[in-house]
């Protein structure tokens, strides 16, 4: 299952110093709510991405605590102000203990 989980990130092209950029993220993940039942009537165990965090050059920018009320393949967009070139680092935490990470370099014009 874990192999299907893939983060996707989109950042605007050609950013300039001081720009406030919209970062769009999506991670493919079932976000099993723990409320659903299978055909035999057994509850399907909960498995969600419960936390997400973003840093820019190691400094925290944005983070979130997610509940089962977040849709499957959680999509999140937020903003970051860039004053210098650097790396955006993303981290998602799964209920099963897995951590998924991604990085995106931002080079200012």
């Amino acid at each position: 299952m874990a192999d299907d989980i893939k983060p996707r990130i989109r950042v605007p092209q050609n950013p300039k110093k001081g720009d406030v950029l919209e970062i769009k993220t999506l991670i493919t993940h079932p976000m099993e709510s723990g409320q659903r039942k299978d055909t035999q009537g057994n509850t399907i165990p909960r498995r969600i991405v419960n936390a997400m965090a973003v840093t820019y050059n190691g400094k925290p920018v944005f983070s979130g605590k997610l509940e089962p009320a977040i849709s499957a393949n959680p999509y999140l967009s937020f903003f970051v102000k860039v004053e210098e070139s650097g790396t955006l680092a993303f981290e998602w935490k799964d209920d099963d203990g897995s951590v998924y990470t991604a990085e995106q370099k931002i080079t200012l014009a």
Partner: peptide, 26 residues
């Protein structure tokens, strides 16, 4: 919903703008 919580987000001044987009189950 079965549980009231949806999400909590935390920001720092580095964000530049406080706006978040998400998709919610209802």
């Amino acid at each position: 919903n079965p549980n009231p919580g949806v999400a909590s987000f935390f920001f720092t001044p580095l964000a530049g703008k406080c706006e978040v987009q998400l998709r919610v189950r209802m």
